[in-house]
Design a protein around this nucleic acid. Structure first.
Lengths: 225, 225
DNA sequence: TAATTGAAGTGTAAGCTGTACACTTTCGTG
DNA sequence: CACGAAAGTGTACAGCTTACACTTCAATTA
């Protein structure tokens, strides 16, 4: 029987992940130098095809896990990219997601097997298809979100110094921030808690380590950095 | 020949439009009371399937034109909705868009033929599938955008009074705004220009009509309402 | 024609937020 | 024990946001 749906064409649907990491060198993306056809040797985002019986969101989670071993990662959809010729050989509609991960905490062997490498956000290689456009949109979206919600902590270790936190926001915003003003704001947020620990790796004097307290935040979710 | 792509499933891809309009009764959405199967008699957004050789953005524009006769409308993507069972009979991945139109300027006969009706944004009927979720996301997105970019004018006639403009923003934000503070802000924006015309329909005294000047705006795009 | 009605239009003061700005402390190294 | 390098700290000014109430105008009605 011919149904209502049969009249309409079907398409390959893919997901692509913009995976952000942060360290002392700033923000980076985890990219793939493709080690298989098609497009062997080219740089791209980590992606894959949506499968039957799998939601698009789940496909993005699966792909992230396949490439990094990570579960339960902070991910948000960037949007659908549906230009007819965005991939040259075949019509593929792709849904982009960005992910924020701790750059020290992923399955390095898996990444190596897939030929994954970190690239500085301001120093990206040429990317396949419309992946650069996806990155730019993701970055913009993440920046807006990070200014109003405490998502930046996903990019930091559990314990972090205020200097690290400031460096993170400087990297996200792409500008410098006054240290005293920054610390004044942080001091006003009860959910950024001082710990008893001192980080001795970055200075002789040592820097106080802080942590983000999710429960305290949810009681009074006022955030602005 | 079997290609790389053949291994992967294909899906119906649809677009759905959240069409905003504004008049003295506030914000409304243009909805469809379906006059054909499947789901005859149910309320839904205006939507359609992406066709071969047509970008997803173009599909949204086409659908909007099919239902309203309108071209060159302000439209933004809300995102992809890809849950496996979001439509009960068939797997369909849908990309939602919102559109801002002047509620007095569309093809009323076309809308009537399709069984389209305006419904107050705070008084929506039950909608098919995940359409309510799409509406909520669209509304949130539009609200954020409207606070930082002068997109609200797409919902107003070319000439409008300050009271209309304020009512619009009150409807978008869902709160009341102080009249003097609102007008102070408007007065600071050179691209909201007084005209020589007076609207006599809404009061005995008459109210000054204003217009939005796109060119002046692009010279100094500072907007905050 | 005077009174009424209803929306349009107008200014100021106080509090809060954002920003600019420079020196002292600490501790390990040489 | 002097030096280097990052951590840590407070104040003053400007600009922005907010709260708040009466007058003006023109058509309608008494």
């Amino acid at each position: 029987m011919t149904t209502y749906y049969d009249k309409h064409p079907k398409f390959h649907v893919a997901v692509d992940c913009i995976i952000f990491g942060f360290n002392k060198d700033g923000l980076s993306l985890l990219l793939l130098k493709r080690n298989m056809e098609p497009f062997m040797g080219e740089w791209s985002l980590m992606g894959g095809f949506v499968q039957t019986g799998e939601s698009v969101d789940d496909a993005a989670k699966r792909v992230l896990k396949e490439y990094t071993g990570l579960d339960q990662v902070y991910m948000k959809q960037v949007g659908a990219f549906g230009d007819v010729n965005r991939e040259p050989d075949e019509r593929v509609i792709s849904v982009a997601y960005y992910a924020l991960i701790n750059i020290n905490d992923y399955d390095k062997q898996l990444v190596e097997e897939h030929n994954g490498y970190w690239a500085g956000i301001n120093d990206l290689p040429p990317l396949l298809f419309d992946h650069l456009q996806m990155v730019e949109q993701a970055r913009e979206l993440m920046k807006k979100k990070a200014s109003r919600e405490p998502i930046g902590f996903n990019l930091l270790p559990e314990l972090f110094t205020l200097t690290q936190l400031q460096n993170l926001y400087e990297a996200i915003y792409g500008c410098t921030i006054d240290k005293r003003n920054f610390r004044k704001k942080v001091a006003d947020m009860d959910f950024i808690e001082q710990t008893e620990f001192i980080d001795k790796t970055s200075s002789r004097r040592g820097a106080r380590l802080y942590k983000f307290n999710d429960k305290t935040y949810s009681k009074s979710p006022k955030f602005r950095l």
